[in-house]
């Protein structure tokens, strides 16, 4: 239910059904007008930020867009940005792949053996309710401060998500289809291979899609708690040193990264669903 709406939904308000509408509405009715309005808004905010008169204390806490831009430029130039961004992406992808692989395979198994699933269900619910970030200290003790503990955290988070969706997918299969194939003489393996896996695929994909966001979030959180590399580390490090500009710069990178990732994911999804239909 909390899926982002497309940024270009039709305008139902530019004039009500009897015509008319304000000047603002008319401006916004054109795509150029809309983009202009947004840029205008952002520009006003930035300019106010940069040039608003403020005392020394406020200046300290607020920093300014120019300083932030400067820091970012330096990071790009001397490579810091790529090192940390790369570290985050690497941990995120390794944890994601591990979690998906485990989640899908065990999910299929539990889907095929509903009684085992029913027995395990309360234990799974319990683990699901635990905020995974709380496991971070435990993993750091068990696996050290390096990548392993972070990858483990991401993997476990992704695992539970993908597991739930995979199980639902396997169980959602139309029983009548299975019956028809059984009557035709299909063995259990053949039913699994030719029906169950295919029917569960949309659910599995949905789980994998949702899991990307959680993988990203938990990688960052793990880096906040205990790391020496990565985007989360950047935020924590600069905040800890009261380096406001640095902290803001790191956040800008975070925002850009998040938006880019979501956009890529949405496009990938549209392409995949087009192929399926």
């Amino acid at each position: 239910m909390a899926e982002p709406v497309s940024a270009s939904a039709p305008l139902a308000f530019a004039g009500n059904r009897f015509g008319g509408g304000s000047a603002l509405a008319r401006t916004l009715a054109t795509p150029g007008g809309r983009i202009g309005a947004r840029f205008g808004l952002v520009a006003i905010l930035l300019l106010t930020w940069q040039f608003a008169p403020a005392g020394r204390a406020t200046q300290f806490w607020l920093s300014s867009p120019s300083l932030i831009a400067g820091t970012l430029w330096q990071w790009i130039a001397d490579g810091t940005l790529w090192v940390h961004l790369g570290a985050t992406l690497q941990v995120m992808s390794e944890g994601y792949v591990a979690g998906c692989a485990a989640g899908i395979s065990i999910g299929i198994l539990l889907g095929l053996f509903p009684r085992v699933h029913r027995v395990l269900s309360p234990f799974l619910t319990g683990f699901y309710a635990l905020p995974k970030i709380a496991l971070a200290p435990l993993f750091i003790i068990l696996l050290g401060v390096g990548d392993a503990s972070k990858i483990a955290l991401v993997a476990i988070t992704v695992f539970f998500l993908v597991l739930t969706n995979t199980i639902d997918g396997v169980r959602d299969v139309d029983r009548d289809i299975i019956q028809s194939l059984t009557l035709m003489g299909a063995t259990r393996m053949e039913v699994i291979r030719k029906v169950l896996l295919w029917a569960a695929l949309p659910w599995i994909f949905m789980g994998m899609r949702i899991a990307v966001r959680y993988a990203f979030t938990n990688t960052l959180l793990a880096e906040l708690i205990g790391a020496n590399r990565g985007l989360g580390f950047l935020i924590e490090y600069h905040s800890g040193n009261f380096d406001i500009t640095g902290a803001y710069a790191a956040i800008v990178v975070l925002v850009l990264c998040s938006v880019l990732m979501t956009e890529l994911l949405t496009r990938l999804e549209t392409r995949v669903s087009r192929w399926r239909h």
């Binding site: 139309d174 009548d176 289809i177 019956q179 028809s180 194939l181 009557l183 035709m184 003489g185 299909a186 063995t187 053949e190 030719k194 029906v195 295919w198 029917a199 695929l201």
Partner: peptide
Amino acid sequence: YLTQKDTLLPWRATADNIRIALELKC
């Protein structure tokens, strides 16, 4: 058994659906 509700596999083309009984090991 030809049921009232058809149980064709939605992810297979029609020809592949008709073929399926002949694909089975038995």
